[in-house]
Simulated assay, not measured.
Amino acid sequence: MTKLCHSCCAPLENPDFKGTSDIYCKYCVDENGNLKPQKNVHWGIAQWLKSWQPGIDDETALERAGHFMKAMPAWSDK
């Protein structure tokens, strides 16, 4: 089974995403391996959504990212 980031769902077995954490990708943690603040991850996911969904604005991307994050273990209780 593929290991996925508990914050953004990135595949942790992919060297492009693997960082120092066993449960978070390198984009979701700071230089000390701690989970970044929710607003930072939220913005990053929104930008990722915009990269493959051309034409959506920031507001729509942020709304979609927020819904996505509610399903992720790191943010489901926030």
Rank of each mutant, 00 (worst) to 15 (best):
C25R: 02
I45V: 13
W75A: 01
R64F: 12
G55H: 07
D77K: 11
M1V: 14
H67I: 11
T60W: 06
T2K: 04
F17R: 02
E59N: 15
L35K: 02
L4R: 05
V41R: 01
Y24T: 07
L4H: 03
N34W: 03
K78P: 02
E63W: 08
E63S: 13
D22P: 00
I56T: 08
R64D: 12
W43A: 09
W48A: 12
T60F: 09
K36I: 07
W48C: 05
K3R: 15
N14M: 14
L12T: 09
A46H: 03
C5K: 06
D16G: 10
L49A: 09
C25V: 14
D22L: 08
H42T: 04
E59D: 15
G66P: 01
K36E: 02
I45S: 01
S76N: 08
H67L: 08
K36L: 15
G44D: 04
G44N: 07
V41A: 01
Q47V: 07
M69R: 03
P11A: 12
C25H: 07
G44K: 02
T20E: 15
T2G: 04
G19N: 09
D30R: 00
A71T: 10
V41E: 00
D57R: 07
G66C: 04
E31I: 14
D58R: 01
C9T: 14
T20D: 11
W52L: 03
M69G: 02
C9I: 12
P54V: 10
D22Y: 01
K78S: 13
W52T: 09
A61F: 05
P73W: 01
K78F: 13
N14C: 14
C8V: 05
D30W: 01
F68T: 03
S21I: 09
D77G: 09
S7Q: 09
A65P: 00
I45E: 00
A74N: 02
P37C: 11
W43H: 10
N40T: 14
K18A: 15
D30P: 00
A61W: 03
A71D: 13
N34P: 00
T20C: 07
P15C: 07
D16E: 13
D22A: 06
P73H: 03
A71G: 10
T2Y: 01
L62T: 02
K18I: 06
N40A: 07
D22E: 14
W43D: 05
K26Q: 06
Q53F: 11
T60G: 07
G44C: 00
L12M: 10
S76C: 04
H67C: 06
P37T: 12
A74E: 02
A61S: 04
S7P: 00
A46T: 04
E63Q: 14
Q38F: 04
Y27P: 00
T60R: 09
C28R: 00
K26N: 06
P73F: 08
D77F: 05
E31S: 15
K3H: 14
E63K: 11
D58I: 10
K36W: 04
G66I: 04
Y24S: 05
K50A: 05
R64G: 12
S21W: 10
K36H: 04
I45D: 01
W48K: 09
W48N: 08
K78Y: 14
